[in-house]
């Protein structure tokens, strides 16, 4: 089997914030009734995190769980463990009306870090990103210029952005332009 590599293979850019492609990240899309106890236990067993409420994201390093819609979760696990975790999850959910799919290779992940990280993303998404409105622990699905994307914060100065792998190059170019030296707006 050939060795998997991520869309841009850890490309990075230094501007008013550091933009980096994070490499491979295991991701499982889980759809079902989020109030179901069996489903909550399957998520807990895979990630160690409790069921997130509306727009909550509990992420610790490469593991975590994000609320995507009232019937959808994004489960994050280390890339090498995704097959095993998915098998365990599918097994735990047999008999429950739910669906878990490995989407790791359909996605690209970027991190934006630095004191201007909020500004860089704020130029691309129609979202209020001030520290009053957006904090670690929250996830927001929106658009980045013309493509869909989701993002959450690892800490107060680091944003993590997820988009489709096919749009990875487009999103990286967007982030590079938004992070050009001297392009601070000074809003956030």
């Amino acid at each position: 089997m050939s060795e998997p590599i991520s869309a841009l293979n850890h490309a990075s850019y230094d501007g008013i914030a550091k933009v980096q492609e994070c490499g491979l990240q295991g991701m499982i899309t889980l759809r079902g009734d989020l109030s179901d106890k069996v489903l909550a236990k399957a998520v807990k067993d895979a990630t160690g995190q409790k069921m997130p409420g509306q727009r909550e994201a509990f992420v610790d390093g490469e593991s975590g769980v994000c609320w995507m819609s009232p019937d959808e979760l994004l489960v994050l696990v280390p890339y090498v463990e995704v097959e095993a975790k998915l098998a365990a999850m599918t097994n735990a959910l047999s008999g429950t009306h739910a669906l878990a799919v490995n989407v790791s290779d359909a996605r690209a992940v970027f991190s934006i870090s630095g004191s201007s990280a909020r500004e860089v993303l704020g130029k691309l998404a129609p979202v209020e990103l001030s520290s009053k409105a957006f904090q670690p622990g929250q996830i927001r699905r929106s658009r980045l210029a013309q493509v869909a994307g989701a993002f959450w914060m690892d800490d107060d100065q680091t944003l993590r952005v997820v988009c489709f792998r096919s749009a990875a190059d487009y999103v990286f170019n967007l982030l590079k332009v938004a992070a050009q030296p001297g392009s601070e707006v000074g809003v956030y």
Partner: peptide, 11 residues
Amino acid sequence: PYCGVDAEETE
């Protein structure tokens, strides 16, 4: 009403 976001028209 599903995700509670004040979404702008372009979204």
